[in-house]
Amino acid sequence: MSWAAPDDIFFSTSLAAYLDKKILVLLRDGRKLMGLLRSFDQFGTFVLCFFLCCLLKFPEEVFCFCEANAVLEEAYERVIVGELYCDIPLGLYIIRGENVVLIGELDVEKEELPAQMVQVSEAEIKKAQKAEKEEMLLKGLMRKRMEFLDLD
């Protein structure tokens, strides 16, 4: 199978334009993965589905779930807590399309993060993450207790 040309209108949302480039993948659980896009099978299921639809006499109703599974090389997770961040190396990742929210191509000439962000170690970011989680929990708890006041 050859990659669809980017100007082909039917296949134009193809990820082929991002191949071998550094990309950011936002996942449904809020995690941010970065790495080089090495492969994807966005329309891999398409051919099969087309065949199926023709078989069922719905040639005009070609439909299949778009998966947009992706393979990331040199992947790392970027954890951001406030103004701290940390890149945790992950190696080679195959991401199942249903978990993907957004795939962004990074502009290599632009700063990836605002200048005031500080890189910290994995241990430190884990600690910050935990502190943030506890703070959120406490906030939720306080709000619950104050609910009878009918604020905002």
């Binding site: 961040y85 191509e105 990074l106 502009d107 290599v108």
Partner: peptide, 8 residues
């Protein structure tokens, strides 16, 4: 902040 350099 992680979206800063995303262009496309």
């Amino acid at each position: 902040p992680h979206m800063l350099s995303v262009r496309n």
